[in-house]
Design a protein around this nucleic acid. Structure first.
Length: 280
DNA sequence: TAAGGCCTGCTC
DNA sequence: GAGCAGGCCTTA
C-alpha cells in the first residue's frame, strides 16, 4: 500500500474528481453509493496518506476517502479510459478531470471504500489501528507493547493491526525468519536486545519490500498496474518443502493465528530456545 | 483464541 | 474435489 500511495501521490495530487462509477454493489462501505458519488464529485485531491493497510486520500471539504484492498484488491491509475484497459474485476472507477481513470479492482470482493466526514474515521475502524510500523513505531514503543502482552505469540501480535499497524502475513513470516525467531515464541520470552533486533529486521524487511515495489505472489499490482519484485526475494514465505537458504533444514508450513505460517525449524527454534545464524 | 464467513480463482 | 490464498469481522 505504501508503494501505491507514493505512485498515486505523484500522479494525482491536485487533481479534481469529475465523476465516479460503481460497478459492483457493496464495494462502497460508507455512505450509500448514491451519496458517495454525489459527495465526491468536484473534490480536489489534496494528498495521499496511509495508516496501516488503509490508503487515505485527503479531499477538499475536508473529506477523506479511505481504501482497503484486503487480499486481492488493486488500485491503479490508467491513462487509457477505454474498456480494454479496465479489467473484468473492476469494482469502482474514479475519473479525474484531466483524464485517465483510477480503477479499484478486486477478484474476491473483500476490499472496500469509505468516504468520511471529519470525525467519522471510526466508521472505517481507523481508530482501532495501533501506531503504523513505517511512520510511527519506535523500538521503545514496540518493547512497551510486547511487555503488555507477554503470553501472546509473536505471530499473533505482529498480525494484530491494533498492536502495531501495517504488517501482513508475508512480512510477518519473512521478518521472523530473518530475525531467527520462531513464530510461536511468546512476547515475554524476548530479551531487550532481541526486541531491538526484531524491530530493526521488521523495518528493514518493509524497506526492502517497498524498494522492490511490493510483493506480487498472485494478484498484487502497483498503481501503474505492474507487479512488484519482492516475491523473488522471499526467504520462507510459500517455500514449504524447500531448503532453508541458511542451513540444511526444510522449510515447514504450519497454522498459527489462523494463518498459514512458514518457518525454518533449524534457524527459528521454538520459544525460549532462540535460534541463531553464524553467518549473521 | 479459534472457527466461520465473506468471495473467486488457482494448484494439486 | 479439496485446500489454499497479501485480511478482517463476527460469533461462539
Amino acid at each position: 500500500m505504501e508503494v501505491i500511495r507514493r505512485e498515486l501521490a505523484d500522479k494525482l495530487t491536485g487533481e479534481v474528481i469529475k465523476k465516479t462509477e460503481i460497478l459492483s454493489p457493496g464495494v462502497i462501505a460508507y455512505p450509500s453509493e448514491e451519496q458517495f458519488c454525489l459527495q465526491i464529485k468536484g473534490r480536489v485531491i489534496e494528498g495521499f496518506l496511509r495508516k496501516g493497510k488503509f490508503l487515505i486520500i485527503a479531499l477538499s471539504g475536508p473529506l477523506k476517502l479511505a481504501v482497503h484492498l484486503r487480499m486481492t484488491g488493486t488500485l491503479t491509475y490508467l491513462k487509457d479510459v477505454s474498456d480494454k484497459a479496465v479489467d473484468k474485476y473492476a469494482r469502482a472507477l474514479i475519473y479525474p478531470e484531466s483524464g485517465g481513470v483510477v480503477c479499484f479492482s478486486d477478484i474476491r470482493k473483500f476490499g472496500r471504500l469509505w468516504l468520511l466526514q471529519p470525525g467519522e474515521e471510526y466508521i472505517a475502524g481507523l481508530h482501532k489501528l495501533g501506531p503504523d510500523w513505517w511512520n510511527e513505531a519506535t523500538p521503545g514503543l514496540f518493547r512497551e507493547r510486547l511487555i503488555s502482552r507477554p503470553k501472546s505469540p509473536l505471530k499473533t501480535l505482529l498480525l494484530d493491526q491494533g498492536f502495531l499497524a501495517g504488517l501482513g502475513n508475508i512480512y510477518t513470516d519473512e521478518s521472523l525468519y530473518r530475525a531467527c525467531i520462531h513464530p510461536a515464541t511468546t512476547a515475554g520470552c524476548l530479551t531487550n536486545s532481541q526486541i531491538r533486533h526484531l524491530f530493526k529486521i521488521i523495518r528493514d524487511t518493509l524497506a526492502e519490500g517497498i524498494k522492490q515495489g511490493g510483493t506480487s505472489i498472485r494478484d498484487y499490482r502497483n498503481a501503474g498496474g505492474n507487479p512488484g519484485g519482492f516475491q523473488d526475494r522471499l526467504l520462507v514465505y510459500q517455500r514449504k518443502g524447500k531448503i532453508c537458504t541458511h542451513c540444511t533444514c526444510i522449510i515447514q508450513r504450519t497454522k498459527l493465528a489462523g494463518r498459514g505460517t512458514y518457518y525454518c525449524p533449524g534457524c527459528q527454534k521454538q520459544k525460549s530456545e532462540v535460534g541463531s545464524r553464524k553467518s549473521e
